[in-house]
């Protein structure tokens, strides 16, 4: 496993020491996971333990009517904003 490549996929900046440490730790954890190779894998996967209790839950695509105060609470958490919009760096050529 190439730690640097994975860090790129995960969008995490790593220092050189961190990369070296993770290389060792992750390889010993993955060795432990080798036990899975011996397991029976003919069963259907369980993605969710409650699949048998509930199926899909649908609703109309309409705003739920949160209080204006809550909306303001959320807007006040934006790290950078212009008016009531989140300000983001250019995504093209970025």
């Amino acid at each position: 496993m190439k730690v640097e490549n994975i860090a790129k996929l995960a969008r995490i900046g790593l220092l050189k020491e961190e990369t070296e440490k993770l290389e060792k730790e992750l390889s010993s954890i993955l060795d432990y996971f080798n036990v899975l190779k011996k397991a029976n894998s003919k069963k259907d996967p369980t993605f969710h333990p409650s699949e048998k209790f509930i199926g899909n839950v649908f609703r109309e695509d309409i705003p739920s009517g949160e209080s204006p105060e809550r909306v303001e609470n959320i807007i006040s958490l934006f790290p950078d904003k212009e008016g009531r919009h989140i300000k983001v760096k250019a995504i093209l050529n970025g």
Binding site: K43, P45, T46, F47
Partner: peptide, 10 residues
């Protein structure tokens, strides 16, 4: 594979 083995645990 993990999710398949999970079915066995369940």
């Amino acid at each position: 594979k993990s999710q398949k083995v999970r079915t066995g645990i369940k």
